[in-house]
């Protein structure tokens, strides 16, 4: 799946691990179940570790372990399922996660703007999309009303000179 990060297509160094069996070499992303079952062994690996949360697996499950992960992937099983927008904001704003926050699953061009605002910084895009399309999606709405994880100045702030 093509991966957009920091406004460009990048090589994806990460591999998703299976539910069981030997782990591949290098950076791997494991499921919540696997993390919970094999915490010690996984934490003892030297290669970077990531975790993928499915819809219904809430960030509080891993809130105490965030320093173990260089990537957290949040799944959008369908673009209509918007739970991960809340998960992303919780990870960034409540639990202070600073690593890569990756959107995976049904990730469409017209959702990228909202995802970015909620704190995602990497996107496995399922639609054909160009970097121009990405930039357009980021820039086409020039003002925002709500504070969110992207720290953009809100209209309320702009009006009242904060």
């Amino acid at each position: 799946m093509p991966l957009i990060k920091d406004g460009a297509f990048v090589e994806d160094a990460w591999t998703y691990a299976d539910e069981e069996g030997p782990l591949p070499e290098g950076p791997v992303i494991v499921s919540l179940t696997r993390w919970q079952n094999e915490k010690e062994a996984l934490a003892a690996r030297t290669a970077p570790l990531g975790i993928k949360l499915l819809s219904g697996e809430e960030p509080k499950e891993i809130a105490g372990d965030l320093d173990k992960f260089a990537v957290i992937a949040l799944d959008f099983p369908m673009f209509k399922n918007g739970r991960a927008y809340s998960y992303a904001r919780l990870l960034r704003e409540r639990y202070g996660y600073k690593g890569e926050l990756r959107a995976t699953g049904d990730v469409l061009r017209d959702q990228l703007f909202f995802m970015h605002r909620c704190g995602f910084d990497a996107y496995e895009v399922s639609q054909r999309i160009t970097i121009d399309g990405w930039k357009e999606a980021m820039d086409e709405i020039s003002v925002v009303y709500q504070p969110a994880s992207d720290g953009r100045k809100t209209i309320f702030q702009a009006r009242h000179g904060d």
């Binding site: 909202f114 925002v144 709500q146």
Partner: peptide, 13 residues
């Protein structure tokens, strides 16, 4: 109205 317009977290409820 303003707070809910294009709310990034709550557009796919």
């Amino acid at each position: 109205r303003q707070w809910s317009t294009l709310h990034p977290e709550f557009s796919f409820l």
